[in-house]
Every structure is written in structure tokens, then in C-alpha cells.
Amino acid sequence: MSKYRLDYLEQLESESIHIFREVAGQFERPALLFSGGKDSIVLVHLALKAFRPGKFPFPLMHIDTGHNFPEALAFRDKLAQTIDEKLIVRKVEDTIKAKHLTEPKGKFASRNALQTYTLLDAIDEFKLDACIGGARRDEEKARAKERIFSVRDEFGQWDPKLQRPELWNIYNGKIHKGENVRVFPISNWTELDIWNYIKKENIDLPSIYFAHNREVLEHEGQLVATSSFIKLDATDKVSVKKVRYRTVGDMTCTAAVESNATTIDDIISEITATKTSERGETRIDDKVSEAAMEDRKKNGYF
């Protein structure tokens, strides 16, 4: 065996760092969309590898729905401080007030769709020409078909029929004024790749990814954390369970899984054995319609 070989995680890492540097080379005003979730934490880790000892040629940007887990927000602020990079936060709450948007109703009303308004406003405010995101193609079938450099029109819309062919590792980020590109450096990573990489690189994560006791209510087989964002009914079954989060989105639309996994190794063995997909198990918002993600992307969602 030659010593000049990369293992699969190093191959994926190399591809992602190359994509990051293409963003730096091709765009004037990019931003890295950062939520405090594991995928965007891995993005930050890869950006450090791509640009240190230099500073990032872009700020981190969080579109805060106001329904986030406090643990994820605290982690977000601490990470930005530790790596000494600029963090921009734009709040969905402010967009709702300023634009008189209507909040979705219902028990698990999610601000997920409203996030798009705040994101598009932020793109406009900072004149962003590229937004780097942590979406992966294994997550969902709409994402499986999206390019690594995905061009959006001036309304932020994705048109699956008009995608540019993307060949070899040559990325075409040329756009007209007003358009922007969503860039997905970890497109080719799977959930398990992310966890194996977190383990290999010893990357810190918010505590909610590990098993902890939490008060949850059961909703159609899914466990949703109780919080001030969810109004409890008399019939709700509330109990304290040992859970962890497989994905971290809004408290209103992310479900926890029962788990005893307190270390990365435990989590990797649970995920290796699981029979349910990441989004299927934990996202309430994907179940609305079969084409939920496709529709959101067409409207400017990342």
C-alpha cells in the first residue's frame, strides 16, 4: 500500500476545502450560513482548514427563527468568539414585525418557511453573491439533484430544470447582478460521514446531540421538547425521557430520539444500526407533503 493515499474522510475533506477556496476565489461577498447544528459546525471546521492562518474571507451568518435551542445559540456565540470570526445574526422575529408577515398557526407552527424572507433580506442587505450552506445530498431527494454551486435568481428561487451542468471539479459561479449562488461544500457527505469526521477531528458539538434527560411530549410517535413555543393541551402526554437530537432545527419542528448515547462512539453505533433516515426521524416539517423540500427550495430556502 502506497503512503500517498488518502482515506475516504480525507478525500471528502479535500473536495470540500477545494470548494471553499473556489468560493473565496470566485465571489466578492460570500457568507457562511451557520446555525449551530453539526453540519454547519463541520463547515466552520473545514473553513478553518481552508483559510488559516488567514481570516475567513466571509462572515458567519445565522438566520435566527427565535425558536432555536438555547444550547445551540450559546454554542454558536462561543464558537464565533473562539475562532475570532465575524458573526451576523438576523432575526425572523424582526422580519415578521417589519413586513407584517403572518405567523403560521397550529401547535407545531414552524417559522421554517418564514426564514426564507429573512435570508433573502439579509442577502439584499449585505449584497451577498454567495451563501455557503451545510446541506447534504443524502438528506432528501430534492437535495440529491442540486448542484454544489446552485444558482438562484433574484428572488432566491431554485429552478431544478435550469441547472448548469457541473463537470469534473470545475465550478461555474458566474452570475448576473442580483442573482446569488448557494454553495454546498459537503454535498457528497452522508450523515455517517459527518459523525465519523467529528470523531476523527475531535470536533466540539452542542450538548443536545448527546443523551440527556428532557421533558418531551409525544406527537404521532415523535418526541418534541416542551418549551414556551408549544402550548400544551390537557390531553398531551408529557414525560421526562432520556433523549438526544439527531438534527438541530427549531424547537417546534425538530424531534428528539430516545437514546443512551453519551459519546460520539455511542452515537455512531446507533446511527449505523438505525433504520430510519435523519430527516424522517426528526423533522416534523418534511412530512407535510412529499415534495415539501422541493417546494421550499423553489421559494428561496437554502
Binding site: R137, D138, K141, A142, A144, K145, P160, K161, Q163, P165, S187, N188, T190, E290, A291, E294
Partner: peptide
Amino acid sequence: GLRAEREQGITIDVAYKY
């Protein structure tokens, strides 16, 4: 594929599977 493909009978060039 996507709903856009099923409804309109078009196919989008490349999808990736893992």
C-alpha cells in the same frame, strides 16, 4: 425524481446516490 419531473415527464440530468 422530483415532483417537477413526475408531473412534466422531464428528467433532470444527474442525481447522486450514496
